[in-house]
Amino acid sequence: MTSKKVIEVFYDVVSPYSWLGFEVMCRYRHVWNIELKLRPAFLGGIMQGAGNKPPGLVPNKFMYMMKDLTRLSEYFGVPLQKPSDPFEAMFQKGSLSAMRFVTAVQEREKGGDKQVEQVSRELWRRIWTEDKDITEPASLAEAAMKAGLSDSDIEEALKLYTSKEIKDKLKNATQDALNHGAFGFPMVVCHLNGKPEMFFGSDRFELMAHCIGEKWLGPQPNKSAAKL
């Protein structure tokens, strides 16, 4: 039996492009012969550690990004919508609390990433579909509730996400991404024959498929396969 290829997805819910990459890799989990590992990390730490600047600091790039996301929403089948104040949503409020909460959910969930996948998705939905807050405990709890977590699970995650243990775990995941050469998100690391291959962004999936010996069927593989 051929062993599965291990693929890590580093992401932050403040990044709309991370949502695209996240959804594609989740869809391909059962299409390609891969073991998918979700790696919530902190984009702010990546930008600082790599010496990168957010696109919002370049006016023309930011304007293009907003138009680009509208096209990408339809193409990828992800419900991206422009927040009322995109700059505030992405850069002023930040995502540190949200990513610590996701990390706490992952720490509690042993033997899989189902809950962390669902909670991450609901947090993206809050920002990029519903134009809602992701910084307050009540906001995190609401996202977790919609993701299907029980009241006791939510209560435990809220107690855990401010702990040193979780802060250190998120910091370590962020440093892992930097060690792989990250300068932004999403970042996908494919482990091939003991060697990591890093791919940045949500527009490298065709190249990724070529490198790992799989077939790219578009961003919505089930729909693409049905047409074949």
Rank of each mutant, 00 (worst) to 15 (best):
E142N: 12
K5F: 03
G21M: 11
W128A: 01
L149P: 12
T103V: 13
E74D: 10
A225Y: 07
P86C: 07
V119Q: 04
L96F: 11
M198E: 00
Q115W: 10
G201P: 09
H30Y: 06
Y64T: 05
H210V: 14
Q92V: 15
P219Q: 04
E117R: 14
I154D: 01
D131Q: 10
K167N: 08
R100P: 04
R125L: 08
G56E: 00
G111P: 10
F183V: 02
V119F: 02
S202N: 09
T162M: 12
Y28S: 06
R121W: 06
A143E: 02
F76I: 13
Q115R: 13
S3N: 09
G148P: 13
Q175P: 05
F200G: 07
K67A: 12
Q106A: 15
A143I: 09
M208L: 15
S95A: 14
K114D: 09
I212R: 00
E156R: 15
L38N: 01
A98P: 03
T70S: 11
A173T: 11
S150D: 02
T129G: 03
V14A: 11
E130F: 14
L20R: 00
K82C: 12
V78S: 08
S18V: 09
F87D: 00
M63Q: 11
E74M: 13
K93T: 12
N33P: 08
A182Q: 03
W216G: 10
L160T: 04
R126S: 07
L57I: 11
L57C: 02
P79S: 04
G51I: 08
P137R: 11
A138Q: 13
P16C: 08
L123N: 03
A143N: 02
A147T: 04
E142P: 06
N179T: 11
L192P: 05
Q92G: 00
V102H: 01
E136I: 14
G44D: 02
Q92H: 06
V31N: 00
S152H: 06
F42Y: 10
S152D: 08
E74R: 14
D153K: 14
A177H: 07
E8A: 08
L57T: 10
K159E: 01
N222D: 05
R100V: 07
K53S: 06
M1S: 06
H191N: 05
A209H: 02
S202F: 05
W19D: 02
A138H: 09
I34E: 00
E88K: 15
S18T: 12
F185G: 01
D12K: 10
F183S: 03
Q48G: 08
W216T: 10
K132Q: 15
K227C: 07
A147V: 09
L80W: 11
N222V: 08
K171F: 10
F183I: 05
V189L: 07
E165A: 15
K164H: 07
I34M: 13
E197Q: 13
Y75F: 14
Y161S: 00
L69E: 00
K114F: 09
K169E: 03
G213W: 04
S120M: 07
F101N: 00
K167F: 03
S202H: 12
L57E: 05
M99A: 02
A144E: 01
V119T: 04
M90P: 06
V119Y: 09
V58W: 02
E8Q: 13
G148E: 03
